[in-house]
Design a protein around this nucleic acid. Structure first.
Length: 219
DNA sequence: TGCCAGGCCGGGT
DNA sequence: ACCCGGCATGGC
């Protein structure tokens, strides 16, 4: 009697949670900091992002007003450690320009909008794709949207819950159709997938050492 | 030492 | 609608 994929997904969450415990994400003190982190961490190790954010904080530049006023070349220099600093400086500029245009520079107000509306608004910003938008919505606004990233895809494909090449929206729908729209579970599930992907299910370790212990077949 | 990290865009088929 | 090159630092 085969178990359906929805049940397998919920089972994965339960196993991850009981193995690793709550991750208490996202690292960041304010919604704006979380949004900046979401842009800076695009295809980049978080530890490189932390340094850039700490630097912005130290220089009192971690606000929509400061980033709006700072010349883009200067901003790039301040976020150097995050990598892709020229392109990311432009993206942060696009983001804060959007905030002032749509919401008076106030991210909190934008995030009170309806999920579907605010997601499309965020996606209209040059430099904000689906993962960045969902990260901001889930972790800064506590809205029930699921974040899909490279770890999510790798883990799901290694566990044969989903082929490698499916689209972002297909993976997101798989999670959102299988689980109750619970912000806490979406938050922890994504964070747990990143934790697993980070510590065990990496590219350098094609045989995920934690998975057999968790009762999963990933030959 | 090379390979990898919590993507996304723009130009070309 | 896909496909691909470009973007860049820092750690293992």
């Amino acid at each position: 009697m085969p178990v359906d994929r929805n049940t397998l997904l919920l089972d994965l969450y339960k196993r991850l949670f009981s193995s690793f415990g709550p991750r208490h994400w996202w690292p960041g003190d304010s919604p704006f900091e979380i949004a900046v982190g979401a842009i800076l961490t695009q295809n980049t190790a978080w530890r490189n992002v932390e340094k850039a954010i700490a630097n912005l904080k130290k220089k009192n530049l971690l606000s929509a007003e400061a980033i709006y006023s700072l010349p883009v070349e200067d901003l790039a220099a301040q976020i150097r450690s995050a990598g892709y600093y020229n392109i990311k400086a432009k993206r942060l500029k696009h983001f804060v320009k959007f905030l002032f245009r749509e919401s008076g520079g106030n991210l909190d107000r934008l995030l009170t909008w309806d999920l579907h509306i605010s997601r499309n608004e965020l996606l209209s910003i040059n430099g904000v794709g689906p993962e960045t938008a969902d990260s901001i919505l889930l972790y800064a606004a506590n809205k029930p949207t699921f974040v899909v990233d490279a770890y999510t895809r790798r883990i799901l494909s290694r566990h044969r819950l989903m082929p490698e090449e499916v689209s972002y929206d297909e993976v997101r729908s798989f999670f959102m159709d299988s689980l109750e729209p619970d912000v806490y579970i979406f938050n922890e599930f994504h964070a747990l997938l990143v934790h697993l992907g980070h510590t065990f299910c990496t590219k350098r370790k094609p045989k995920c050492s934690a998975c057999p212990a968790m009762g999963w077949n990933n030959d």
